[in-house]
């Protein structure tokens, strides 16, 4: 991979989300939040979207489910296509059938007085018949491993449990794409790990495309197929995880490169070359062992 230059994913036939030269300015803002973003998300991948605070990650996510421009207003140029629909021509609730958005703060996205009622909220809005609704709520609770919490009030649950409820809420609407905006930033490591496992399972078992906005790359990167790095409203790196994490640019922007990759880099600077770029600790151990045995 060539360091520094954005790499576009080759296969475009399977694109579930595609933006072309997307420029967006919030109403009342002087500077554009997105300055010409072109990305392609393939169906069925797990994408990590990262970059420093204020780089436009959250703004981009809002474009994917129509909150931008329909809720936020502002000025939008370029194109966003999600599951074959142009976002500007759709309503947010139409898009909600295709794209689910899970927010950072679990507390502010659960508003019902019981978990199952919260999970049903979207389905109620879509006027799904009651029998079908009950089935889908149960299914969503099962997939996220929180069946036993169904009658509990959400605000009495732990942060990790709440976040799984939030995932179930979105899952019940059976979206093609699920976007999670820093879902683990309030959670402890074990809670975070569980969230990543749930997400991974949804992707593997149901083929849901996952877009994960994350700073916590040490825990998340092992699940990623594709990493997009943004900085100052632009996509600066875009490609498979190994290449992106290993690039000099990622480090300069201040991406929290996984320690496994960092170790690889430091070893290389000292003249020791591992046969591949590790992203997880398991990979690093394996690659190290190779070198140690070879000698």
């Amino acid at each position: 991979m060539i360091e520094g230059s954005p790499i576009t994913v080759a296969n475009e036939t399977l694109a579930i989300i595609e933006t072309r030269k997307l420029v967006y300015t919030y109403s009342g803002a002087k500077k554009a939040a997105l300055k010409g973003v072109s990305v392609t998300i393939e169906s069925g991948e797990i994408v990590i979207l990262t970059g420093p605070s204020g780089c436009g990650k959250t703004t981009l996510c809002r474009c994917f489910n129509g909150l931008i421009p329909h809720f936020y207003g502002g000025k939008i140029e370029g194109e966003v296509v999600v599951a074959g629909h142009k976002v500007v021509d759709q309503t947010i609730y139409e898009l909600a059938r295709h794209v689910g958005l899970v927010f950072q703060n679990p507390e502010n996205q659960l508003f019902a007085l019981s978990v199952e009622k919260d999970v049903a909220f979207g389905l109620e809005n879509l006027a799904v018949p009651r029998d079908e609704m009950i089935k889908r709520v149960d299914w969503a609770l099962q997939m996220t491993g929180i069946e036993d919490l169904s009658e509990r009030p959400p605000h009495e649950l732990s942060g990790g449990q709440q976040q799984r409820v939030a995932i179930a809420c979105v899952l019940a609407m059976q979206p093609d794409v699920m976007i999670l905006d820093e879902p683990t930033s309030f959670l402890d490591p074990v809670g975070a790990q569980k969230i990543f496992e749930v997400i991974n399972e949804l992707n593997k078992e149901l083929g849901i495309t996952i877009i994960l906005v994350e700073h916590r790359l040490d825990l998340a990167s092992k699940y990623a197929d594709h990493v997009v790095v943004m900085d100052e409203g632009k996509v600066v790196l875009d490609g498979e995880p190994r290449g992106v994490f290993n690039s000099e640019k990622a480090r300069l922007i201040g991406v929290g490169v996984p320690k496994a990759t960092r170790l690889y880099q430091i070893l290389r600077e000292n003249g020791t070359h591992l046969s591949g770029v590790p992203v997880t600790s398991e990979e690093a151990s394996k690659l190290l062992l190779e070198v140690l045995k070879r000698d």
């Binding site: 970059g51 420093p52 605070s53 930033s185 309030f186 201040g254 991406v255 929290g256």
Partner: peptide
């Protein structure tokens, strides 16, 4: 909490 890598 809530800080990116560089801020952290």
């Amino acid at each position: 909490i809530g800080q990116d890598h560089r801020q952290k």
